[in-house]
Amino acid sequence: MDGRIADVMGSGISPAPQNRAIVLEVDQARQRDFKRWLLVFAVLVAAASFDACQRYGIVEHGFRLDQIQKLRDAEDAQARHLRLERESLREPSRIEEIATRELHLVVPALADTRVIERIVPPEQPPSSVVASR
């Protein structure tokens, strides 16, 4: 057997096919094709990921917006409650009670009062714009 191989190697004659080593040939065209498709796939995946992120971001934004709106509504409601409370505290009989019973103020007699200056409030224009609620 050694002699045979030596003979083969020495004589320059190729060995029998069944003993030939397999040589992989690189298929350049196929490689190029493969890389191209990989790139396309990567771009598609990137685009899809980007789109998914955007949509997710929009949904998250929507959650936040809803939260902020709820907060704002709660603040509005609180403001209304406070306004009502303030007006209740200004109720005339309550003020008079505090003034006369607690602070011992007295109502001046008409003769003890004197008009210093009377400001005539201007008339409202026929149709005026007010701040909207």
């Binding site: 149709s127 714009v129 007010v130």
Partner: peptide, 11 residues
């Protein structure tokens, strides 16, 4: 004395 509607005061 006046009606305030839609941000407008109409006397």
């Amino acid at each position: 004395r006046a009606v305030i509607e839609g941000g407008r005061r109409v006397p």
